[in-house]
């Protein structure tokens, strides 16, 4: 029985990836771009799911990791010429990891609500720094840059087209998903889940809980930074708005709507939220957050498992 459902999982996985890969060939330009964005926001949501869903730490600071990924990529693209894709990815990851280490060192001393608040305040610290340090970060206007070519180092380089950009994002997100899935199923991931279930008992068994938490925050920050790099490459700019706490809030919304602790759920949540925003903003213009917020409250109260919660066992075996 177990083996068979394993097989259905992989078949389903391949079908979804194949559909997503084929999508840009069939979709009009607007929806292709939309789909790419869903994937990027989905990666951000997935990274925070490692904390919210698996370790039981609600992070309100993911915008800092995402934003530093963007600014790291921007720094690499602006200073080195010709712009190099992999250098941008590397710099973005280093930036995000640095911030994550800094935030993790302080905030993992606290639990539950205190953790949520300190991560929020940390993201605001970085927002203020980026917003006011105009000489380096461009302040309110942010930074704009050219998109680097898609390259395999020393072998091959070609400019990004709309389709290859989508495929590149899809490849990165799929790889990240597989890595994250592996992490959550590894012994390390099991310890994280036991921290979620009962932190004191985990400590009593002999695991250095704080160290596990720091590593969890760093891993989560790395993937959030990767999402930031992708977003920077797609949109060719880095702006302080993306370090602002609203992005963290949206990440939490993606998680709750899609279903925490499922990895797939947050991507679904991101897609659901973006679609909702797209349709609702036709009726409510920029006030779409009023109905979305109400729906969010209702989901917190009545549907704590999220859209995908009921399918969790089936998906994450």
């Amino acid at each position: 029985m177990k083996k068979r459902s394993h097989k259905t999982y992989w078949i389903g996985f391949c079908v979804v990836v194949a559909l997503l890969a084929a999508a840009p060939l069939a979709l009009p330009d607007f929806w292709r771009r939309f789909l790419t964005e869903i994937l990027i926001w989905g990666l951000l949501a997935m990274s925070s799911d490692l904390l919210v869903g698996y370790t039981g730490m609600l992070s309100f600071g993911h915008s800092a990791f995402f934003g530093l990924g963007m600014y790291g990529a921007a720094a690499a693209l602006l200073t080195v010429s010709p712009p190099n894709l992999w250098l941008a990815v590397g710099c973005g990851l280093v930036g995000a990891a640095g911030v994550a280490l800094f935030a993790a060192y302080f905030s993992t001393r606290l639990r539950d609500i205190y953790f949520a608040i300190t991560t929020l305040i940390f993201s605001q610290i970085f927002y203020v720094i980026i917003f006011t340090w105009t000489d380096v970060t461009g302040g309110e206007n942010g930074l704009t840059f050219r998109r680097p070519p898609l390259s395999i180092p020393w072998i091959y380089a070609t400019p990004f087209t709309n389709e290859t950009l989508h495929w590149f994002v899809l490849a990165v997100v799929t790889a990240s998903y597989l890595i994250l899935r592996r992490i959550t199923q590894s012994p390390f991931g099991m310890v994280l889940q036991s921290i979620r279930e009962n932190e004191n008992r985990t400590r009593a068994v002999g695991y250095p809980v704080e160290r596990y938490k720091v590593v969890a925050v760093m891993l989560s920050g790395l993937f959030a930074g990767l999402a930031g790099v992708l977003y920077a490459i797609q949109n060719r700019f880095a702006a302080p708005d993306f370090v602002y706490f609203l992005v963290s809030g949206e990440t939490v919304i993606f998680n709750v709507m899609g279903g925490i602790g499922t990895l797939i759920g947050p991507i679904v949540g991101a897609g659901f939220f973006l679609l909702l925003r797209e349709t609702l903003s036709r009726f409510f213009t920029e006030y779409y957050l009023i109905p979305v917020g109400m729906m969010f409250i209702a989901m917190v109260i009545f549907m704590p498992q999220g859209l995908l919660g009921f399918a969790r066992n089936w998906l994450n075996r």
Partner: peptide, 27 residues
Amino acid sequence: PLLGRDPLTTILATFGVSLVLQNYALW
């Protein structure tokens, strides 16, 4: 309705409330 659940859910609910109120005021 959230009484007795994980205190983290109350952050989520009040966060939703803050979104609604803020956008209501803007509107």
